[in-house]
Amino acid sequence: MTLALELAYWQQLAIKVLAILVIVPTATAIIVQTFLFKMMAHMQSRLGPMEAGPHGTLQLMADGAKFVQKELLAPARADRRVFTLAPVVVLLSTFLLFVVIPAGPGIVAENLDLGIFFALAVSSISVLGVLMAGWASANKYALMGGLRAAGQLIAYELPLVLAVVGVVIQAGDLSLQGIVRAQAEGEIFGFGLIGLPFVLTQFLGFALFLIATQAELTQPPFDMPVAESELVAGFQVEYSGLQFLYFYLGEFGAAFAFSALAATMFLGGWWVPGLDLEGGLLANVVGPVVLFAKTMAVAFVIFWIRFTYPRLREDQLQSFAWKYLIPLSLVNILVTGAFKVIF
C-alpha cells in the first residue's frame, strides 16, 4: 500500500473504518435492490417497486427513511438492554466479516494471516445476536425462532468450516490474499492462463459452502427460524424501525459478504488473467470490479434458490446437515488431503 505508508496508524484505521461503514450499507443496498426487489419480482412475473426514481432505483432511500422515522417499540416485558443490544450484535458480525475480504492486491482492510478463520469466527457472532433477540423479545414466536436459529446456525457452521478446509488445504494458506494468489498461480494440467479457480477442484466444497451459506443466512430452504407463514418473522417479530433495519442490514450484508467469500475462495477472487498479483494501480482499480461481478454471480445463485424453494422442517434440516453435509465435507477434506499428498 503505497498510499497508506505515508499515513499514521490512526489515520489508516480511520480510513478503513470509514470505508467499511460506507461499503456495508452500499453493498446491502445493492443486494436488496438487485435481488430482493428486482430479481424476485421478475421471477414472480412482477415488476417490483417502480415509482421511486427511474425503475424504482431509489426505493431503498424511501424505505430507509421510513424505517428511520418509525418509533422504536419494545414489548413491556422485554429485557430492554438485551433487546436493544441484539440487532447491534448481529450487525457487528456483518461488519467484521468485511474486514478480511480482499478486493485487490492493496485493497483489504486487514490482511490477516488467519483471514478465512477470522471470517468464519466472526460470522458466528450473529448467532448470539439472534438468540438474544429471541430471548429478550418476551414473545413465544420470537423465542422459538431464536432457538431454531441457534440450533440451525450451529449445525451448519460445521459444514461451512469443513467445506473451507478443503480450499485451505489446497491453497496451503489461511489468508484470503494467499488463497487468491494460490488460485491465480495455479495451473490446470500445465495450462496456467486462467489460473486454477478452486471451484474446478473443490466443486463439492463449493456446493457445500453455498448450501451452508444459505442456512447461515436463514434463507429458504433453510429459513425455519424466520418462517413468515408460521413464526411470522421469528426473532425479528417484535422489532421495529431502526432496529429492524439493523437486522435487515445484517442479513443482506452477510449475504453479500458470504457471496464475496465464496467468490474469493472458489472463483479466484479479485484476480482475472492479466492482472498483476503484486499490486499496481490497474489491479487495484480492476480488482474490486472483478470481485463485485463474481460476488453478484454467486449472490444470484443464492437468491435464485431462495425464491424458488419451499423450506425444510427444523428436524429435517438438522438431519440433512448431520447425515449428508458433514460426512460429505469430511470426504471432501479426505480426498483433497490425499491429492495434496500425492501431487
Binding site: 421478475h42 421471477m43 412475473s45 435464485w304 434458490i305
Partner: peptide, 20 residues
C-alpha cells in the same frame, strides 16, 4: 429441485405481467 429453478429462471426472462 433443478426443474423448479428452471421455472423461475424462465419466468424471469419473460416480460412481467404487471400493469402499472
Amino acid at each position: 429441485l433443478m426443474k423448479g429453478l428452471n421455472v423461475t429462471l424462465r419466468t424471469m426472462l419473460r416480460p412481467a405481467v404487471t400493469t402499472q
